[in-house]
């Protein structure tokens, strides 16, 4: 555990909590892509199956349980409790275009051809692109609520901090995992355009809106 890893995890947790609170307080999931939230629930579920097979630490177990719990709570909000406010008309990204290649790739490029390892690999690859339906929705509507941009900022920051964590671990532990690093790089790059808009607009008190 190093400072980048810890702040990365906390940033991830902050993102998840911000989204849940936003929906709860406003009683609305307008502007949120349910499809991205489904993908994140699939990511956590397929990655954290090792909860059933191995114990690493109390921290590790509690964070995994919290992430999974929050992911399903978000899905419950979007598709059941606040379904009337869900903007499905704008949530039109075709997720099969992500699931099929990512599924195929996890069978082809993995550390070990075993069910748990393939599912872990699948989750790493899927996470790297799971935000695309949300970004697609924003590009379609041309705007995002400020609170939604805070959610996206912390969600993007988390993987960027993990990149520093992996540099740290490579230097001080000689450890690296090429699958996680490449997927993490792709994931962070996908947020770059958003980071630019967040810094130049949202942090200056303006609403995030895209030119028509």
């Amino acid at each position: 555990m190093n400072v980048f890893r810890l702040t990365g995890d906390l940033s991830h947790l902050a993102a998840i909590i911000i989204l849940l609170l936003k929906i709860w307080k406003t009683r609305s999931c307008a502007g949120i892509s349910g499809k991205s939230q489904i993908l994140f629930a699939v990511v956590f579920t397929s990655r954290y199956l090792d909860l059933l097979t191995s114990f690493i630490s109390l921290y590790n177990t509690s964070m995994k349980v919290i992430y999974i719990g929050c992911a399903y709570a978000t899905l419950y909000f979007v598709y059941m409790k606040f379904k009337a406010t869900y903007d499905g008309n704008h949530d039109t990204f075709r997720v099969e275009f992500l699931l099929v290649p990512v599924g195929g790739l996890s069978f082809l490029v993995n550390h070990d051809f075993s069910p748990l390892e393939i599912l872990w690999t699948f989750s790493i690859y899927l996470e790297s692109v799971a935000i695309l339906p949300q970004l697609f929705m924003i590009s379609k509507t041309g705007e995002a609520e400020t609170i939604t941009t805070h959610y996206l900022f912390f969600l993007g920051l988390y993987r960027a901090l993990y990149l520093f964590n992996w540099i740290w671990r490579f230097y001080f532990e000689g450890f690296f995992d090429m699958i996680a690093i490449v997927a993490g790089l792709v994931q962070t790059i996908l947020y770059c355009d958003f980071f630019y808009l967040y810094i130049t607009k949202v942090l200056k008190g303006k609403k995030l809106s895209l030119p028509a």
Binding site: R5, D9, H12, D50, S54, I56, S57, N60, M63, K64, Y67, H111, D112, E117, W120, Y162, N165, F175, D177, I179, A180
Partner: peptide, 10 residues
């Protein structure tokens, strides 16, 4: 093996 270490990450 090296990759099991990654499982300690989230």
């Amino acid at each position: 093996c090296h990759h099991t270490q990654a499982k300690d990450e989230l």
